[in-house]
Computed example of a mutant assay.
Amino acid sequence: MTRLFVYGVLIRELAKGRAAELIAPLEEGRRASVEGTLYALRGGDGGWYPILLPGESGKVHGMLHDASGVDWPAMDAFEDAQGQPDDEYARREVPVTLADGTTTDAFAYCYVRAIPHEAEPIPGGDFGAWLRETDRKPFEARE
């Protein structure tokens, strides 16, 4: 079974616009985490989105979904992960730990550029909690 780990604007409670359309066919998902570091960037619409650096020290929290309903070409286009040299992300398989401690592998969109100087670290690796704590909104559309 193919799985998808989401940690930002593709989390159902945070998804707006195109992101909400892309995840609509997916089941509710299960809480999960990956090893890594999370940063936030401001998008063109003034909202924020996270960038994941997998395998770094720390834990990033998100949701694990059965990806059988994912429209991969549309998801890759949304995430700017189409295999081009200037892409922002790449879809990579990463180890994921579920809340009950079991592990599996899943695709996640990992940041592939140098970390911009304006990137803000997200302590605790939870994008939704960071948005609430900083009174910011998630981005809805790519610039």
Rank of each mutant, 00 (worst) to 15 (best):
R136N: 10
A32E: 00
F5P: 05
G101L: 11
G8D: 05
A32Y: 03
A99T: 05
R42T: 14
L53E: 07
Y7P: 09
A15M: 04
R92Y: 00
V70Y: 08
L38A: 11
G43D: 07
S57I: 09
G46W: 13
P121M: 09
L52A: 13
Y89N: 09
R91G: 06
L53Y: 13
G101C: 10
D66H: 12
Y111K: 03
L22H: 06
L22D: 07
T102H: 11
Y109S: 07
E79W: 00
A67P: 04
K59M: 12
F139E: 03
P25A: 13
M1E: 03
F78D: 03
K59S: 14
W72H: 06
R136D: 02
E21Y: 07
V112T: 15
V34T: 08
L26Q: 06
I11C: 15
T97D: 01
C110R: 05
D76Y: 00
A24M: 09
T97W: 08
V94E: 02
P54E: 10
F127M: 10
P85Y: 08
G44N: 04
P73F: 03
V94N: 03
R42Y: 07
T2A: 14
A67E: 03
E27D: 11
C110H: 05
P73V: 00
V9E: 09
G124P: 06
E118Y: 14
I23T: 10
V6D: 05
A20V: 05
E118R: 13
A114F: 12
D45E: 10
P25G: 10
A114P: 08
Y111G: 04
R30A: 15
E27P: 15
R132C: 01
M75N: 00
G83P: 01
R113A: 01
R18T: 13
G36Y: 09
E79V: 00
E13P: 13
P116S: 02
L22K: 05
F127P: 07
S57Y: 00
D76I: 00
L14E: 06
T2N: 12
H117E: 13
D126S: 13
R42V: 15
T104E: 14
P54H: 13
G43R: 08
G124L: 10
Q84Y: 06
G36F: 15
A67C: 07
F107C: 06
D66I: 03
G128L: 10
A40N: 05
A20I: 04
E143I: 02
R136K: 15
E28D: 12
D86R: 02
G62V: 08
H65M: 14
G55H: 05
G55C: 08
M75Y: 09
T102P: 01
Y39E: 04
V96C: 10
G8A: 13
P121Y: 05
L52I: 02
V9K: 04
A32Q: 03
V96A: 10
I51L: 14
R31E: 12
V112R: 15
A40D: 02
T134Q: 12
E79K: 00
D76P: 01
